[in-house]
Amino acid sequence: MTAVSVTDPPPSPGRRLRRPGRTLVLNVVAVLAGLGAWTALSMSGITGLTGPVEVAARGVELVADGTLTNDMLASLRRVFTGFALGTLLAIPVGFLMGWYATARALIEPYVQFFRTIPPLAIIPLAILLMGIGETPKVFVIFLAAFLSSVVSTFQGVLDVDKTLINAARVLGASDRTIFLKVVVPASTPFIIVGMRIGLGAAWGTLVAAELIAAQEGLGYRMQQAQLYYDLPTIFVGLISIGVLGLIMDRLLLLAERRFTGWQERR
């Protein structure tokens, strides 16, 4: 008898193997294309638009005198503190709302109410109640991160497959075991997504938060540059916020792959 060779069927379009090298090349091409478009626009005669070369030169100046480093550290400290506090509170509150109907009925109206209020609208109240120190700045960032993460966590608990929960009960698992072994792992992807959205909200709130009598920070520096029509400094601040936010987002993606390795991926 001749052996019959069996080959795996080709992957479907939605299940193609990932090619990290190709993705990196495409990322580099996208960045270079963006820089090229920016350069072309700056040379096209648009009034006041600064090109990449001028922005890079200004960035080198700000790094050399330590201004950019100090501003980045100040902004990172505020964002990280507000984001960490918001996430640490959002996860247990989201689990509580999703697991207990009574807690959901008591807490959800407040969550949905404050979600309709932009965190920036809280700034005047935060100044009056907390003064002009670091506390109100961190608080508005905390609020932005919390409201984004708590809804995602809550929805993740609600969307856990009831078949899994019922199967665990049939096998004699206690509520505590079901929660730890079924609900938490199944809702982890939702939590990570909520954290990524919360991180974006935290950075988005930063500039306004640093208007509260700040003396350093990327948002503060951009506001000062606006007064003197210093476009290169504004661009340096924008790019710095984008790069720092991107790095933090990539770290969250790494955490997602670490904690959701059991998930089937496309």
Rank of each mutant, 00 (worst) to 15 (best):
A3I: 05
A3V: 05
V4Y: 05
S5A: 14
S5Y: 10
V6M: 10
T7D: 07
D8P: 06
P13W: 05
R16C: 14
R19E: 10
G21P: 12
L24G: 04
V29Y: 06
V31Q: 15
L35P: 05
G36S: 13
A37R: 09
W38E: 06
W38V: 06
W38S: 06
W38T: 06
A40D: 14
S44L: 01
G45C: 05
T47A: 10
T47E: 11
G48H: 00
L49T: 10
G51P: 08
V53P: 04
E54N: 12
V55P: 02
V55D: 02
A57C: 11
R58G: 06
G59I: 00
V60L: 14
G66N: 10
G66K: 11
L68N: 05
N70I: 01
M72N: 11
L73N: 02
A74W: 03
L76D: 07
R78G: 12
R78F: 14
V79K: 02
F80Y: 02
F80H: 00
T81F: 12
G82Q: 12
F83M: 08
F83N: 04
A84C: 12
G86P: 00
T87E: 07
T87Q: 08
A90K: 02
P92L: 04
F95E: 08
M97R: 02
M97V: 03
Y100S: 07
Y100H: 06
A101D: 05
A103M: 01
A105F: 05
L106M: 07
I107N: 01
E108G: 04
Q112Y: 06
F113K: 03
F114H: 08
T116R: 07
I117G: 07
I117N: 08
P118G: 00
P118E: 01
A121K: 01
I122V: 15
P124C: 10
P124S: 12
I127D: 12
G133L: 01
E134S: 02
I141S: 03
F146C: 04
L147V: 01
V150C: 03
V151G: 01
V151T: 06
S152G: 01
S152A: 07
T153H: 06
F154W: 10
K162A: 08
K162L: 04
L164Y: 11
L164C: 07
I165L: 15
R169N: 13
R169H: 14
I178A: 13
F179W: 13
F179Y: 12
V183G: 02
V183A: 02
G194D: 12
A202S: 08
W203S: 04
L206T: 03
A208L: 02
A214V: 00
Y220L: 00
R221N: 12
R221C: 09
Q223E: 12
A225D: 04
A225S: 09
Q226L: 14
L227A: 15
L227Q: 15
L227Y: 14
Y229W: 13
D230P: 00
D230E: 00
P232Q: 09
T233M: 12
I234R: 03
F235D: 03
V236D: 04
G237K: 02
L238S: 10
V243C: 11
L244A: 13
G245A: 14
G245H: 12
G245K: 11
I247V: 13
M248Q: 00
D249F: 15
R250E: 07
L251K: 11
L252E: 08
R257D: 14
R258E: 07
R258I: 10
R258W: 12
T260C: 14
W262P: 05
W262M: 06
W262D: 03
E264A: 15
R265F: 01
R265A: 03
